[in-house]
């Protein structure tokens, strides 16, 4: 259940009174204004809104990559907004899986080695790491490409590797920033099916930013960012607006 009125309780992710103001030149730009959000475990939420509306800023704040001007974010009971930078880094390693639009794989590492990266921060043995990586790559359907370098993979396959890297350490939730933004429609459909499967079969909580209403329609809930505040939308209405299927 996703709520934006700030009245929910016991949710996996709780955002309260979130403000974010940037200073550009001498001017202050308020991107987020007293934003509230509750996301339960296993929810799949899409954030939409025009460019510059603060979608990515919100994602960065919930992922512990940025700090708010005021307000709080709690994830699974951990209040992250007052953590030190080093604590936040450790927290990210344990709780957040990132999926970027541009994949952001390390080009000199194979798919296996890229997926293994988050596990290098754990105390797992090499053989245990291998098992985890192989499992993650099999979930995304790339068991036969694990020793390929990113340049030897298609865009869709690269994004699958990114998803495998995001899930390999079994994080609390996944943050997807335009995960299909750089893909053709067919690959985009495959990636969305994979993300849906992660939610449906593996119980993952997914927060996704997208410009594409068809992609957003795949989510359980779609929220619009307007004037720095979240407004709930209808996935069905959005799909109808898109006039097709993903």
């Amino acid at each position: 259940m996703v709520r934006v009125d700030g009245k929910g309780s016991g949710a996996l992710i709780q955002v309260r009174g979130l403000n974010k103001t940037y200073k550009r030149g001498g001017e202050s730009i308020q991107v987020l204004q007293g934003l509230n959000l509750d996301v339960d475990k296993g929810d799949f939420v899409a954030f939409m809104g025009p460019s510059g509306s603060g979608k990515t800023t919100l994602l960065n704040l919930m992922g512990g990559l940025d700090v708010p001007t005021s307000g709080t974010i709690s994830v699974d009971g951990d209040e992250i907004t007052h953590m030190s930078a080093s604590k936040l880094t450790q927290w990210r390693a344990r709780h957040v899986g990132f999926i970027f639009q541009m994949y952001n794989l390390i080009p000199v590492l194979t798919a296996f080695q890229n997926v293994e990266l988050p596990l290098l921060l754990t105390k797992l043995s090499a053989s245990d790491r291998k098992k985890h990586v192989e499992t993650a790559l099999s979930v995304v359907g790339l068991s036969d490409r694990m020793h390929h370098y990113p340049r030897q993979l298609s865009g869709g396959q690269e994004q699958r590797v990114t998803i495998a890297r995001a899930i390999v350490s079994d994080p609390t939730f996944l943050l997807c920033d335009e995960p299909t933004g750089d893909l053709d429609r067919k690959s985009a459909t495959e990636i969305m099916e994979l993300i849906e499967a992660l939610v449906a079969k593996h119980g993952k909580t997914v927060l996704m930013v997208t410009h594409d209403p068809v992609v957003a329609a795949r989510a359980h809930t779609t929220l619009h960012l307007e004037k720095g505040e979240l407004v709930e939308g209808s996935a069905e209405r959005l799909a109808a607006m898109a006039g097709g299927h993903v």
């Binding site: 990559l65 080093s86 880094t89 344990r94 970027f100 541009m102 952001n104 990266l117």
Partner: peptide, 14 residues
């Protein structure tokens, strides 16, 4: 720069 940023994002410390 981008690769190092990704490493930091996924939990590699400063």
């Amino acid at each position: 720069t981008g690769e190092l940023a990704v490493l930091k994002a996924i939990g590699f410390g400063d």
